[in-house]
């Protein structure tokens, strides 16, 4: 098994602050915008982005968690069902600009499920997608991200392993290649 390091803590910090600057360019003071982290792993990235944005715009930003398990299109088609996580969106998304946040964009199917799940909370004015890693040429459906941390060329059998550290000191994101 080969491991290639895509992000460590210092690089991740730089990337997150770049993404936040890009977000501010579009969303201004965030009075009409909300962040929704996708369960299970997108929420940690979403929390960091919220924290960074709050220090930049000096105001509270709404953050929600969205679980897509019940909206997936592979239920009863995979070997085991996925255990659902908590959905917590304690604000209205009607007419808001929603920024969906996830760690890795791969086939795009989870994003499709998220768009579907989000409909049950109202009709947002606009939805954007932010991902840390964009795995190029792997999409099963036409979904692209508006904000990307890093684009990576991968093949189907490779995996991206995201290890985010609570103290933000030992973050590692790996590209894992299994040997034939």
């Amino acid at each position: 098994m080969q491991k290639r390091l895509l992000f460590d803590s210092p690089l991740l910090k730089v990337t997150i602050s770049r993404l936040c600057q890009q977000l501010i360019e579009v969303h201004g003071d965030f009075s009409q915008s909300v962040i929704i982290g996708m369960q299970p792993r997108g929420i940690y990235l979403a929390e960091r982005i919220k924290e960074e944005l709050e220090s930049l715009v000096a105001k509270d930003i709404h953050l929600g968690y969205l679980d897509t398990t019940f909206h997936r299109d592979d239920f009863r088609r995979r070997d085991e069902p996925i255990t659902p996580s908590q959905t917590k969106i304690p604000f209205l998304i009607e007419n808001k600009n929603v920024i969906l946040v996830d760690d890795v964009l791969f086939t795009g199917r989870t994003v499709r499920a998220a768009l579907d799940a989000m409909n049950t909370f109202g009709r947002p004015a606009k939805v954007e997608l932010l991902v840390l890693i964009d795995r190029l040429y792997s999409r099963h459906i036409p979904v692209e991200a508006n904000y990307v941390g890093r684009k990576v060329n991968t093949i189907q059998s490779q995996k991206v392993l995201v290890e985010l550290d609570e103290k933000q000191k030992e973050d590692h994101i790996w590209l894992i290649t299994k040997e034939e």
Binding site: D67, T69, F70, H71, R72, F75, R76, T83, P84, S85, Q86, T87, K88, D116, A117, N119, T120, F121, G122
Partner: peptide
């Protein structure tokens, strides 16, 4: 415990403005 954990998630679903998920659409 698995049933309870899943039920807690569905309790959140049935308290949403739109109380429906598409999981069993082919059942």
């Amino acid at each position: 415990e698995l049933i309870f954990q899943t039920a807690a998630n569905f309790k959140e679903v049935i308290n949403r403005p739109i109380k429906k998920v598409p999981s069993l659409r082919d059942v």
